[in-house]
Amino acid sequence: MKMMNNKRVCPFKEDSSLIKKINYKEHKFLKKFITEQGKIIPGYVTGVSAKYQRMLTKEIKKARNIALLPYRVDVRNY
């Protein structure tokens, strides 16, 4: 029963208006799905379903290309 309670629900299936925000220009929204170091958080941690995780990774990589999101952040510098 514990497992049942801990199971996360995909945020995009709960609120379909968020799907529009999966876009490389919405880098502030995409920031939720990367770690402090700039790594993409896997879907099994955030609960995002595979379909939307695929879209997310593509858009995050686009945003990295145009310097809206970092490729990596060196935490030691802070």
């Binding site: 220009k25 310097a67 999101l69 970092p70 490729y71």
Partner: peptide
């Protein structure tokens, strides 16, 4: 501010 420096520049003007 750019997420990482490009050609040694830390800032840039975005145009769409």
């Amino acid at each position: 501010k750019l997420a990482y420096p490009i050609e040694k520049q830390k800032y840039g003007t975005y145009v769409l």
